[in-house]
Design a protein around this nucleic acid. Sequence first.
DNA 1: GTAAACCCTGAGGTTGGCTTGAGAGTCAAC
DNA 2: GTTGACTCTCAAGCCAACCTCAGGGTTTAC
Lengths: 146, 146
Amino acid sequence: MKKLLKIGELAKQAHVTVATIRYYESLHLLEPVSKAENGYRYYDDEAVTRLLFIKQAQTLQFSLAEIQQVFDVRKQGEPVCTLVKTLIDCKIATLEQEIQQATARKTMLETYRTSWAARPLDNPSDVKVCSLIEEVSLTLNRLEAI
Amino acid sequence: MKKLLKIGELAKQAHVTVATIRYYESLHLLEPVSKAENGYRYYDDEAVTRLLFIKQAQTLQFSLAEIQQVFDVRKQGEPVCTLVKTLIDCKIATLEQEIQQATARKTMLETYRTSWAARPLDNPSDVKVCSLIEEVSLTLNRLEAI
DNA sequence: GTAAACCCTGAGGTTGGCTTGAGAGTCAAC
DNA sequence: GTTGACTCTCAAGCCAACCTCAGGGTTTAC
């Protein structure tokens, strides 16, 4: 039997704050293996694994709700692989979309930047609006008119 | 002199809700040209342009605070191009980072998916945790150990 | 034996961009 | 002259993932 960890020790090992751990508990994502009379929470090593898993899943853009789904299914004694596969497929598709959209936005911004570089500075004494903004707005108006 | 618009008419033309318009006013992003005795707001066509500009800027990931910066500089009679150029450059850099990160995440997820496909389903009667999760956790533990 | 460092609960705050609701006044059409 | 569509203000709620604070109790190290 290994030594149990107090919340602060767990927090250090998993590189999170104690507040985060308590927050996860409120979401039923992580429960202490025991709670002493004085109210202190005690955790085993699995808690560290669990927290690291949560953090890894988060960097992969999984929400706490999705992570909880996985844990819930697991808790019911069912294999979670099907769910995980679905989640992964879904997330990959979402990421693809996001990459496409981000790329499109970047292209648009580069276009604006180029057209901006091609024109002189607006005359400070005669500025109603940045000419770039005018252009953007006109473009939009033309789009609206279609 | 063109006809002034009531808030509902403006909302329709700019494809936003009246609540949004009032919210923007609270942020000083958009003011009515006049306010009647009964409190009704009246807008000119520039308001439509302004709203469309805001929406366009938002799709390009500009925050309302950034958009307000542009309007503020413009209000002071200064050319906003320098600011806009800075913002655009900044945003392009951010987008590049985001695209890189998203791509990295996608690659990682695809790796997980592949390694998942290569193994059989976890035995439902002997499931402590999805083997994929185990693997992720083990990977992380190894990383931690370095 | 005392002071620092830890732990507890519970409530409230943060960020951004809105949305919703209550309660009331106004306007246009028939 | 009334119904229904519009408008107003002010306040609160929503989402996610926490963080912070108040006001305590506990443990540990010296």
